[in-house]
């Protein structure tokens, strides 16, 4: 399956430009994060086709996945 992957904010450090990933098997967003090159310990949130999803969501063919940074200080 083909998945489009991109990032916003400081997650662009790992995914500077939108890229296409070809996956053999369905994976969760948490797994996709690591496949896309984002360190496991880095806090991110997930948006699929414009809708917010949690890490357990399984990606489907042609999904457009965006990784957002998660920051909490003030």
């Amino acid at each position: 399956m083909n998945i489009s992957v991109s990032a916003m904010g400081n997650i662009k450090e790992f995914i500077p430009d939108e890229m296409q990933l070809e996956l053999e098997t369905p994976v969760s967003l948490s797994e996709l994060k690591v496949i896309a090159g984002i360190p496991k310990e880095r806090n991110v949130s997930f948006v699929v086709n414009g809708r917010v999803q949690k890490g357990g969501y399984t990606v489907s063919d042609h999904d457009d996945v965006k990784f957002l940074m998660l920051v909490g200080a003030g």
Binding site: M8, G9, G50, R51, V52, Q53, K54, K66, L68, M69
Partner: peptide
């Protein structure tokens, strides 16, 4: 949603649809 990267001096925005399970 607006993301600001101060190091790169960039600001991006998008509309976030609610999670169906929330």
């Amino acid at each position: 949603y607006i993301a600001v990267d101060f190091r790169q001096c960039s600001m991006e925005r998008m509309f976030l649809e609610p999670n169906d399970d929330c």
